[in-house]
Design a binder for these strands. Structure first.
Lengths: 123, 123
DNA sequence: TGTGCATATTTAGCAAAACGCATATGATCC
DNA sequence: GGATCATATGCGTTTTGCTAAATATGCACA
């Protein structure tokens, strides 16, 4: 009923997106769930710092985590944030290359399941 | 070509919206242009403070001003910000009551063209 | 079972920036 | 001169951005 108190909530949500690191995380997550170690390699930031931003997003109800062995996977759960990302960055193209090659086991340089590595080099 | 440098620009734009006062200003401006004195009455903040936020928005290329006699009217010029506002707050309904009653001469309590005032009291 | 290694979270801390606001001054138009 | 608006300055408080250290937690393997 008081429209200005709602606006505060919206401003809070925009503030979540108004942060390069968080925006980059969310842009990655709207493509596919990602484990923390991959986000670390992707953003080039120290891991505790990424955990901090993930926590901000988690406590705001924007993302959720699910553990799988050693790894923790995060995924986007807020449809409105997804809509905002689409409105701002454009929708994710179906054929668009995801940041990772294969999902189930993290493939970023650190986690390095050696499977595809030499393919990348020669092809 | 470098998608992450673009993300910085997008984050900047989100940051503009992630501010209660600016968001309230933009929400008003997407309905209709407003003069500063009306925004002052609408937000209940001192005039220099509002001018300050308007300047932020102006220098970011989100709004533009046009002078008309004593008054300065601001309007929204960034279509992408308008799209984000629509995505977040919902589109402006056609019949929705604008904050002001009549545009050409500001009608907020301060500028008070006395025209409609007693109507408000009795009806 | 115990030890070690790797992933991830949490806590603490700090410098820098942003915020909220007041006040004073200036410009412009009537 | 009077009103609207912009700009500038200052100040106390809060938030941000980031680093570093400490603390779980799960897996592997002897």
């Amino acid at each position: 009923m008081t429209p200005s108190s709602d606006l505060n909530d919206y401003a809070e949500r925009f503030k979540l997106l108004g942060h390069p690191v968080r925006l980059q995380i969310l842009d990655a997550l709207r493509r596919t769930p990602e484990c923390v170690c991959h986000l670390e390699a992707l953003l080039g930031k120290p891991q505790p710092y990424i955990s901090q931003q993930l926590r901000v997003l988690r406590e705001a109800g924007v993302v959720a985590d699910s553990k799988d062995g050693l790894n923790v996977y995060y995924h986007l759960i807020d449809p409105q944030v997804a809509a905002l990302l689409n409105a701002a960055l454009g929708p994710v193209l179906p054929g668009e290359r995801s940041h990772r090659q294969a999902l189930p086991n993290c493939v970023c340089p650190k986690c390095a399941a050696p499977a595809r590595q030499m393919i990348t080099l020669q092809a």
